[in-house]
């Protein structure tokens, strides 16, 4: 079986009151589901790797094939837990190691 290629996304969210991890992940799943349906969401291979409430950042893992799809879904998020919000993809990387290297350059 071929190895599934993945990408790691460092995302930053803008919101007044920081949501908890569950609420953030729910918003991401809801956005993917809304735009691409359950079938599309199943292809995305979404997983939350880390969540930093203080920095308002998170690292999400996705399947490479679904990268554009997830990017669009993240961009379509306008509210998290009933509060107006925006989610921006700061950087994309193939490994967590290089993502952390880039992270220091982004912030």
């Amino acid at each position: 079986m071929r190895r599934v290629k993945r990408r790691y996304l460092l995302v930053r969210f803008e919101i007044e009151h920081v949501p908890d991890e569950r609420e953030f992940l729910d918003a991401v799943w809801a956005a993917v589901g809304k735009l691409y349906g359950e079938f599309g969401a199943s292809l995305a291979g979404l997983a939350l790797i880390s969540y930093d409430a203080a920095e308002k950042t998170a690292i999400i893992r996705v399947a490479l094939k679904a990268l554009r799809m997830v990017r669009a879904a993240l961009a379509s998020i306008t509210c998290i837990a009933g509060e107006k919000a925006a989610v921006h993809v700061m950087t994309v990387s193939g490994t967590l190691k290089s993502l952390h290297k880039r992270e220091t350059r982004v912030f």
Partner: peptide
């Protein structure tokens, strides 16, 4: 609105729709 602004690459991703 500030919260409706998206990065250029995000706009490009949305255009895939």
């Amino acid at each position: 609105e500030l919260l409706l602004l998206r990065m250029p690459r995000e706009v490009a991703a949305l255009a895939g729709l």
